[in-house]
């Protein structure tokens, strides 16, 4: 037991000396920052409600101006000003008195044809188009209601609008799983590097001369890699908590991510044992992890979804079973790989 701790301690000391762990945390922070920036940027473009007081002014003309005005009353963030004809509406648009022009015409087929003009190539265009869509959809609903008798199946009445933050779902379903799983990949990569480096530099031979078994060496290296993972995840969760995002079930989340780290480390040890050098090992490891996580995420109840449901507090019995199952798989995989390596040695 002692020798394993010594090996684990040496691993961690190496990481500290190179300050790589700081770099790792820096990279994770950068990823988190940028994915948030991306989403905040995109959401504020797509959900103008998120922008404070984004209000568009629509110049309307044509047959159905009244109905359009009624629809605008239901949509927050859009107001309609009627104009006598299309030319007047258009000149208002040209004068910057309106953000968009809507000209409606009732056709013989019974439809309402709507010609919409939006400004070209400015940052606001997206916001304007999104608001216009909201306005026109409301208008469509009203028109559809008026023709409900012609429909075979009437649409379901919509519940009232409610205020919600567009970032809420993103935070729990993307950001938290991302932050929880980044340390997992890093730990696996560390193990691959650590083992291939020892083999490459011949220090593994030295280690073998010492009174430790191969299983001890694997244990020590795995312990160091697995040990540093939950701490990083906890750091992120605490940071989110401090930021006002409450995360439920922190214990089960950490248990799940530790299980996954063990699984990935087992894969990493196995790959490092069979691959001829670091280059091949890292390549195989990347592919394997990609496959493992890509496949698992695509399955119903994949690890990312499990973490999201735990964090948002929508977990049920199946999620609990899932965590236990992952832990069992991870333990089995690790013990299997450890046994094979102890018997076969690192094959080069």
């Amino acid at each position: 037991m002692d020798s394993r701790l010594t090996i684990a301690g040496r691993e961690i000391a190496g990481l500290r000396a190179e300050k790589t762990i700081l770099l790792a945390i820096g990279i994770q922070l950068f990823i988190a920052m940028f994915s948030s920036f991306l989403v905040v940027g995109l959401v504020s473009m797509y959900d103008p409600g998120a922008l404070d007081g984004a209000q568009i002014e629509v110049a309307a003309a044509g047959d159905a101006v009244d109905e359009l005005e009624r629809a605008a009353a239901e949509v927050p963030g859009a107001s309609v000003t009627p104009y006598d004809d299309a030319n007047a509406a258009r000149s208002a648009f040209e004068r910057n008195a309106a953000d968009a022009v809507v000209v409606t015409t009732r056709t013989e087929s019974g439809r309402v044809s709507t010609a919409v003009t939006a400004p070209d190539a400015t940052v606001e265009t997206t916001v304007i188009v999104v608001q216009l869509r909201e306005l026109l959809r409301t208008y469509e609903l009203n028109e559809r209601d008026a023709r409900a008798s012609f429909l075979e199946e009437s649409p379901l009445p919509l519940p009232d609008r409610s205020d919600t933050s567009p970032y809420f779902t993103f935070t729990y379903t993307v950001l938290i799983p991302l932050l929880v799983f980044l340390p997992v990949f890093i730990s696996g990569s560390l193990v691959v590097d650590s083992i291939t480096e020892e083999l490459d530099q011949g220090t593994m031979e030295l280690l073998r001369v010492a009174p430790v078994t191969l299983a001890d060496i694997v244990d020590g290296k795995a312990a160091a890699a697995i040990g540093i993972a939950p701490g990083q995840a906890l750091l992120w969760l605490l940071l989110l908590e401090a930021n006002g995002t409450s995360v439920a079930n922190v214990g089960p989340i950490l248990a799940l991510m530790t299980a996954l780290t063990t699984l990935v480390v087992a894969v990493a040890v196995g790959i490092a044992a069979v691959a001829p050098d670091r280059q091949a090992a890292q390549l195989l490891y990347s592919v394997a992890v990609l496959v493992l996580f890509g496949g698992a995420t695509a399955m119903a109840g994949g690890p990312a979804n499990a973490v999201a449901r735990l964090a948002i507090d929508s977990a049920d019995a199946t999620t609990g079973v899932l965590v236990v199952a992952y832990a069992a798989i991870a333990a089995a995989a690790y013990l299997g790989v450890r046994r094979v390596v102890a018997v076969e040695g690192f094959g080069r």
């Binding site: 040209e94 910057n96 044809s113 709507t114 400004p119 188009v129 469509e140 028109e143 023709r147 429909l151």
Partner: peptide
């Protein structure tokens, strides 16, 4: 729905036009 006119009573044609005048 078989009656598409009643199901989708509004047809939208969206065009982007650059303003040729204006303050901004």
């Amino acid at each position: 729905e078989p009656n598409q006119t009643a199901a989708f009573p509004v047809v939208v044609t969206l065009r982007y036009v650059g303003r040729t005048t204006g303050v901004d």
